[in-house]
């Protein structure tokens, strides 16, 4: 059992990185990691020893993330949980962010959650297509189209941001 816990501890930095890239807000990201750990610890007995801890934990966290985005979306239908709120909350952190960093983070938030997850698992976390597809529970072809569409979207958003930046500079 202790060995398993040590394996989980070793994955914490990666879980935090992935969560932060998914959610942007660092506190919300750590809360997601925490929920993931709770669930993992409750299910420690179900963990197949031949399954890599990384994939097991990322699968748990991904499922929690999807639950969460569904809930947020449903709430958004009745409620104006405005972007301004999240911006206000994360404002102090933003002061330390460079424009490049902020633009990547903002762009990711505008990409559909399933595509966002795909480009992050593959491009940031280095999972193979086969691993990422298993983790997300989708066929490999679906994963590949999410990766290519997600990257295409990211490129377009980053271009938009830099154009807007140029326009702002010109206006002054």
């Amino acid at each position: 059992m202790e060995q398993r816990k040590a394996a989980i501890l070793a994955e914490l930095p990666r879980l935090r990185r992935y969560s932060r890239a998914l959610l942007r807000d660092p506190d919300a990201a750590d809360d997601l990691v925490q929920d993931c750990l709770e669930r993992a610890l409750r299910r420690l007995d179900n963990w197949q020893t031949d399954e890599k801890p990384r994939r097991w934990l990322f699968t748990i966290m991904h499922n929690l993330f999807i639950d969460q985005t569904r809930r947020t979306r449903r709430r958004a239908e009745v409620v104006t949980l405005t972007l301004d709120d999240s911006e206000a909350v994360s404002a102090p952190a933003e002061q330390h962010e460079s424009i490049a960093t902020r633009e990547i983070m903002d762009a990711l938030q505008e990409i559909r959650p399933d595509r966002r997850a795909a480009i992050l698992l593959v491009g940031l976390e280095g999972f193979s297509y086969a691993e990422a597809a298993t983790l997300l529970g989708v066929p490999a072809g679906t994963l590949m189209s999410r990766v290519s569409r997600g990257r295409e979207e990211l490129r377009g958003l980053l271009d938009d941001f830099s154009r807007r930046r140029v326009v702002k500079v010109v206006e002054r």
């Binding site: 807000d25 506190d27 919300a28 750590d30 809360d31 997601l32 925490q34 929920d35 709770e38 929690l64 969460q68 809930r71 947020t72 709430r75 949980l81 709120d85 999240s86 909350v89």
Partner: peptide, 11 residues
């Protein structure tokens, strides 16, 4: 956790 949580997040 209570000290740091701010945004919507839920089990």
């Amino acid at each position: 956790a209570a000290a740091v949580l701010l945004l919507s997040l839920g089990v």
